[in-house]
Design a protein around this nucleic acid. Sequence first.
DNA 1: GTCGGTGCAAATGCTTTGCATTGAT
DNA 2: ATCAATGCAAAGCATTTGCACCGAC
Lengths: 147, 147
Amino acid sequence: MTQPPGPLCALFRRHLRDVGLKYTPERARTLDAAFHMGRAFEVDELMQELVVRGGGASKATAYRTVRLMVDAGVLEQILIDKDRAHYRISTGDGSGITLLDPETGKMLPVDDPALSEICRGIATSHGWNYRGFRIHIMASSPTPDQS
Amino acid sequence: MTQPPGPLCALFRRHLRDVGLKYTPERARTLDAAFHMGRAFEVDELMQELVVRGGGASKATAYRTVRLMVDAGVLEQILIDKDRAHYRISTGDGSGITLLDPETGKMLPVDDPALSEICRGIATSHGWNYRGFRIHIMASSPTPDQS
DNA sequence: GTCGGTGCAAATGCTTTGCATTGAT
DNA sequence: ATCAATGCAAAGCATTTGCACCGAC
């Protein structure tokens, strides 16, 4: 059973402690499952992954746990589809560029320093106080076969 | 009564004709109102604007008309908030940049042709088939007083 | 025994849809 | 008369919440 990397786990545990909740085996399994999705996912898909890994969760619990992970900064919500929320393991820096295939959910974080400068410029030129940016570049990934 | 620019109107009328519907005064007013929002808006806000301009619309009609405008390519849906759909006058290229104040929820769609080129470049340099991009620039909006 | 965890079902809130009425040609 | 537009209320759907029961310390 591969464990998620320490930092994620620590982040989650710290948050749970801060709000007076416990790091239960259930929640550990959910974190584990989220980490092993390896791509953006919906709550539904996370629930399926939990079942596959043994020991599912009710809809209510799944949603509650996902929210906890978002609050903890372990997951971030990404907006691809108006109807269903998608999540992924957080990039952690609040800003980021992500190549994203809307169909498969596959993601690839990329970097481009020039973009952050441009974004900052756009904000200031409108008189806004720049904080950060998030870019989703929608694209079809090369070959769906080779995950 | 300021009319929306011809191209938008033409786009809308053409689509309506294509699907066998009419360009009624009601729809003209809705297009007009959407154009004059001058910012991203929710369906609710569009309904309020319609009331202000005289002659509101029922929830059902408002939603239906917004959908028609999206289908026509006059509006595009922007994904900022999971709970409510936001729309704005289409930039035409399926991509969009939005200034977003996380605290107030205020949004301002902006344009920057250079960015789409950069994003396209990023996607292709990774071997992905570019579709579009979405940029959220987080920033604090200026105080409303000095608008 | 006290707290929090969980699941079920009911509630929410945005959005869509069914249906009867209304209006235009 | 026909065909589409409109409004109301009901339906849909993802998500949240109320509540009762269960388990750990």
